[in-house]
Simulated scan of single mutants.
Amino acid sequence: MRITQGCFSFLPDLDDEQINAQVEYCLEQEWAIGIEYTDDPHPRNNYWEMWGHPMFDLRDAKGVMMELEECRAAKPDHYIRINAFDNTRGWETVRMSFIVNRPAVEPKLDLARFDRHGRTQTYGLRAGR
């Protein structure tokens, strides 16, 4: 199963040239860049680990790409994403986020139905087989 979270997630994986172009766009908008990683891609996992510090003062995409390469080397079997944070008053939120690294084998999630008290049914996700 292919995890689809963030921008571009339904497209084929971006290569480094395409990632660099997106980072350049974010920097032109004066958005701060952050790199995060996780081995738990569950949709409700909002707490990915941050790689280094957010790059608020960076103006060159090469710096982001160097940090990304270091993260990929240290965490090759993790999901890695780039976040672009807009600190403009009134926005103050992530404006763009996209996955830039995936493990060789992605985990599977199954939708499971659970029978509860009486005729109540609930649904949830569980690790696939």
Rank of each mutant, 00 (worst) to 15 (best):
K62N: 12
D60Q: 10
G6S: 03
H117L: 07
A112D: 02
K75I: 05
M65C: 06
T122K: 02
N87H: 12
C7D: 03
V23A: 14
E69S: 05
A104M: 00
D15R: 14
T122Y: 06
A127K: 03
G34F: 01
S97T: 11
T38A: 13
R119I: 06
S97A: 13
I99A: 02
T38C: 14
P41H: 08
Y79D: 04
E67P: 02
A74W: 01
L58W: 06
P12H: 03
E36D: 04
L109K: 01
Q29C: 12
D39V: 15
I82Q: 07
D40Q: 13
R113P: 01
C71N: 06
G90E: 05
C71E: 06
M66C: 04
L109C: 03
E36W: 00
R89W: 11
G6F: 03
V94T: 15
I80K: 03
E67Y: 09
S97N: 08
I99Q: 02
C26L: 14
C26V: 10
D13P: 08
G6R: 02
A61R: 11
C26R: 09
M55V: 07
E106N: 06
E92F: 08
P103Y: 02
T4C: 10
E30Q: 14
N45F: 15
N87Q: 12
H78S: 15
A74S: 06
G6T: 02
L111K: 08
F8S: 01
T120S: 01
A32N: 15
D110V: 02
A61P: 12
S97Y: 04
L109N: 01
D110E: 14
E30V: 04
K62P: 01
I3E: 09
F85T: 06
F10P: 00
P103T: 05
W91Q: 00
A61F: 13
L27R: 09
C7R: 01
F114K: 05
H42G: 03
T88N: 11
M50Y: 11
I33C: 12
A84Y: 08
N45E: 14
R113A: 11
C71R: 05
G124C: 05
R116T: 09
N83A: 12
G118P: 00
